[in-house]
Design a protein around this nucleic acid. Sequence first.
DNA 1: CATGAATGAGGATTCATTCAT
DNA 2: GATGAATGAATCCTCATTCAT
Lengths: 205, 205, 205, 205
Amino acid sequence: MSPRRRDSESTAAARAERRAGLLATAAEVFASRGYAATTVREVADAAGILGGSLYYHFDSKESMVDEILSTFLTDMWAAYDRVLGSGLGARETFQELVAESFRMIDRYRPAVVIYQNESKHLAANPRFGYLQESQRRFRETWLAVLDRGVLDGEFRADLDTGLIYRFIRDTVWLAAGWYRGDGPLPAEEIARQYIAMVLEGILST
Amino acid sequence: MSPRRRDSESTAAARAERRAGLLATAAEVFASRGYAATTVREVADAAGILGGSLYYHFDSKESMVDEILSTFLTDMWAAYDRVLGSGLGARETFQELVAESFRMIDRYRPAVVIYQNESKHLAANPRFGYLQESQRRFRETWLAVLDRGVLDGEFRADLDTGLIYRFIRDTVWLAAGWYRGDGPLPAEEIARQYIAMVLEGILST
Amino acid sequence: MSPRRRDSESTAAARAERRAGLLATAAEVFASRGYAATTVREVADAAGILGGSLYYHFDSKESMVDEILSTFLTDMWAAYDRVLGSGLGARETFQELVAESFRMIDRYRPAVVIYQNESKHLAANPRFGYLQESQRRFRETWLAVLDRGVLDGEFRADLDTGLIYRFIRDTVWLAAGWYRGDGPLPAEEIARQYIAMVLEGILST
Amino acid sequence: MSPRRRDSESTAAARAERRAGLLATAAEVFASRGYAATTVREVADAAGILGGSLYYHFDSKESMVDEILSTFLTDMWAAYDRVLGSGLGARETFQELVAESFRMIDRYRPAVVIYQNESKHLAANPRFGYLQESQRRFRETWLAVLDRGVLDGEFRADLDTGLIYRFIRDTVWLAAGWYRGDGPLPAEEIARQYIAMVLEGILST
DNA sequence: CATGAATGAGGATTCATTCAT
DNA sequence: GATGAATGAATCCTCATTCAT
């Protein structure tokens, strides 16, 4: 490793790493206590520094959630877009989108919890306009998949896709509330069962 | 209406009615802004009185949510218990419990939203021990229904009932987040489609 | 005094009086310590209440200076406009404007001190746009008086009126820095000597 | 340039130069934003370094103003003392002192602004005792000139010299607030007009 | 000489709560 | 029943200052 390399690491990269570490801590705390109910001091305590020190790295408590959520959403849409661009049929697209969602939960669990619990309130703030935009795309994406599935005869025609969409929208992230990476069921398996339940129902045939 | 009757109304009954009205207002505000983020003043504003005046009726902000949630849960369990005591099979019990849940959403929408969003945080407080107790009974109840359904051959045996329970636990209340009593779909119809989806899946057969 | 009258007094008027009293206290403190260097707690201490209590009456520290300054400026311009509208010659107008200024110092001493010391910094804030507007009118007004005096042959033509204006602009309020209503010299007398100095100079003739 | 020479520069002299440069920057910022309202970081930004780096050169924010003000005052009193020691009459002394003051404004504009705006507040701090001492000498000096002028029959006897002194004390530095070295009027000319105004008045004769 | 990260005291502001009227 | 004024603890954030590198 050259000195130059080390030098750049000790500035830009190290700074970014520190930020990322602090954000991971903050996300954990926001997720478990709720954003509004979490004090900056609690985040700092969890990070082992003093409250004021957080402001060397971040402008405000708000900018922390902002970064947490936008990082997650950016990555999520990249994954969704990969799926949507691969020319799959409605059913396969459904399966892959769900699978990606559970991978996101695996990777960004606290961010997903925050997204679930707080995005409705945060979206009122212009700064978080991208939350509404994301919500809009999400709806558009899922409705398209469901409608196409109905057209192709893959999905039942007697169900209101608007209704189904709403259930999926909310349920797809719900596992974030209880999922533990170290639990008995891996994300893959949870996704598989979720898909089986939604596609085929829980009745035996 | 006799003067005596009116007099009693203006004390016990009228007092209770006023409380109920204020709680309805408070529930609305807590549901839309989030409990932690709602100020007592916002509740009072919505009720058309001053912040301090709420303290004539309630001990604290906390006692307001407390009453909102416990009223809802008491009623909910009464309805659940009626279903559970009527000797139905697993599938019918499933259907009736879900139907009751949607009726609850219809009747207690703001309370359900608060329950969904805040009960995890509130449960840390000993005062809200009944939330954990309720959660425990909910889990016990639903697992029993699912397990019995599997035993009876009504439900698929290849799904993890623990997993299915968690989805149901969360999804059954989710509609509270967007349901509007004056919307196009009545609670009954939403329940019907929800049941159809969970029981039979969304695939066409 | 009718009950109705007393009632109205105990609401609107009493509230206004309390505000005015607190503002007088705040003005005193801002004037003596400097606005930026004054803490809200110091203002509250001076008023005999706790820091937080000030926020029942005012939105912010800023809104306090705002009200202090705008009240003063409104009254000042009313007085100036009376003089300007009375059709006096340049010299008499000069004398009367100066006299009014010293009366303002007498009545609004702390506000004038704040105006002198802080308006340049505050004016950067859009909320205090009226400070710039007031400055503009002040300049326009005094330049008109001076220029007309030169035209009429009352004032010397060999002095730069732009320069003279600047001296007057600043000096007219300067006495606020040391004037004490209970000192040996009444405002009238100070104004008289100021006028004599500026009009005739300090040389003996 | 010998290595030795360069070496000495990079220690004593260069250090002093760096300090002077940083102080000039600091004075500029303090003057434009106000001392209390200026953050150390703003000074550092203006100097192109980081906040903490200033502490290599100075003990504290306070020591910066201290050095700014004492440098200015030392130089000012040297100039004043030269005038006072040259045996001039009251009128000439008046003229020369005013001329020196305007030269000071030309050379130390930001320091003079700070002196005008902050010295009253800073003087409360024992460290800045010399500000009060300077104020005392200033008063003594000017009163002596004025009183002697009255005795000698050069200045009018009907004006309160205590009052005149106060106007001069404040006005003599006021131009610092708006003077620009690159403006149309040189310091000399402003001084000339100021002297003409105060000595002879603005009335035409 | 300068940086970057942190400290810790303090500052403006919010808010649940109290209480005399 | 409600008001209006106040309390006081807690919150977010700022900033002068320190110090290892």
